[in-house]
């Protein structure tokens, strides 16, 4: 178990848990970040990342990445 922010480029991970407030969690879920989903780090720019989830690319800042536990 680690926050997604610690994953490496190209690594395939599965989401185990998402923490944080309801509204943002729901927005993440709307975008495809749900427990059990597989996520891949496409690019890492000083802590902000581009994540491949359900075939789309989502850019997230470090705080958000810390909430996604893989």
């Amino acid at each position: 178990m680690m926050p997604l922010s610690m994953a490496k480029n190209g690594e395939v991970n599965y989401i185990k848990r998402i923490t944080g407030k309801d509204q943002i969690r729901q927005h993440l879920a709307d975008l495809g970040f749900v427990v059990g989903e597989c996520v891949t780090v496409v690019s890492n720019l000083g802590g902000n990342m581009i994540i491949d989830v359900k075939g789309t690319r989502i850019a997230l800042d470090k705080n958000m990445l810390n909430r996604i536990i893989v």
Partner: peptide
């Protein structure tokens, strides 16, 4: 066709354009 984790052309561009 694509497996999760495979890089598309778009991803390859991003690796350069959003490189640290």
């Amino acid at each position: 066709n694509r497996k999760p984790g495979d890089l598309t052309t778009s991803d390859k561009i991003d690796l350069i354009v959003t490189n640290r």
